[in-house]
């Protein structure tokens, strides 16, 4: 068994893939973080405080996981869905009744979307109440606020796609609020819906926003958000003890 492990770890394919040894020693545990694109978002060492569940509750990670799950289930839904007022509703009915696991797929996308909105809101509250927006993290907080708004937009544009009564009237009510903006309101509403009321033009626009524009913007901003967490020194919990120590050292 040990020989087999040695053989695999020393084989050319393995070495071409992993640029570090088995991570059971400090050097390789550092290298695994710096040579792996997914791990390199993390620091080599973390403060014990910042990984305590009672500090962050993992809400940011859950939100990101929801984004990934929504992307995956969303792509699968696109295989069965055509954004046309004539067929959209019946595509959903077919998906739910004829496609294997179709109902589960749609359920996961629907509930996942609600959960992402909820965890994004809770994540913002957590960041605020732990004072994690303080310098040098001010701008990452601003990115977070934009991310929250984009999450709303993503969920709201998806709401219309099933083209049932629920979707139609929720979007009618939702977009009518925009019309109350005194200067540009009517223009904004028209731009969103592509016409005076919710119809094919609105469905086409919401579809394009929902499957392409919003996910792409979210992807970029999430990348930027996480990168800045890393660059600003990890979670704010890191600093609590360090500053006390620095004062003791004087």
């Amino acid at each position: 068994m040990k020989k087999l492990k040695e053989f695999i770890l020393n084989s050319r394919p393995w070495k071409s893939f992993f640029r570090h040894g088995w991570p059971d020693n400090p050097l390789d545990r550092s290298l695994i973080m710096t040579t792996n694109i997914f791990f390199h978002l993390h620091p080599v060492r973390v403060n014990k405080k910042s990984i305590k569940a009672s500090y962050s509750m993992g809400l940011g990670i859950i939100t990101t996981v929801m984004y990934i799950l929504l992307s995956l289930t969303g792509i699968m839904l696109m295989f069965y869905y055509v954004p046309s007022v004539e067929t959209a509703y019946f595509d959903i009915v077919t998906l739910q009744t004829k496609v294997p696991f179709g109902q589960l797929l749609r359920n996961m996308h629907r509930w996942g979307a609600h959960m992402m909105v909820l965890t994004a809101i809770l994540h913002m509250a957590r960041v605020f109440y732990t004072g994690a927006y303080k310098p040098p993290r001010e701008f990452n907080w601003v990115i977070g606020v934009i991310l929250l708004i984009m999450t709303f937009v993503g969920s709201f544009t998806g709401y219309l796609l099933p083209w049932d009564q629920l979707a139609f009237w929720a979007i009618t009510v939702g977009t009518s609020v925009a019309a109350y903006e005194p200067l540009m309101g009517k223009t904004i509403q028209k731009l969103l819906l592509g016409g005076p009321e919710v119809g094919q033009a609105a469905l086409t626009r919401f579809y394009a926003l929902h499957i392409m524009v919003v996910p792409a913007v979210l992807f970029l901003l999430i990348a930027l958000h996480i990168w800045r967490v890393r660059k600003d020194g990890g979670l704010a919990a890191n600093e609590v003890k360090d500053e006390v120590e620095a004062e003791d050292g004087k």
Binding site: P23, P26, R29, S30, I32, M33, F39, H42, P43, V44, R45, V46, N47, K48, K49, I51, K241
Partner: peptide, 9 residues
Amino acid sequence: NTIFAFPIV
């Protein structure tokens, strides 16, 4: 008070 991020994180 820090530990290696791998594998715990």
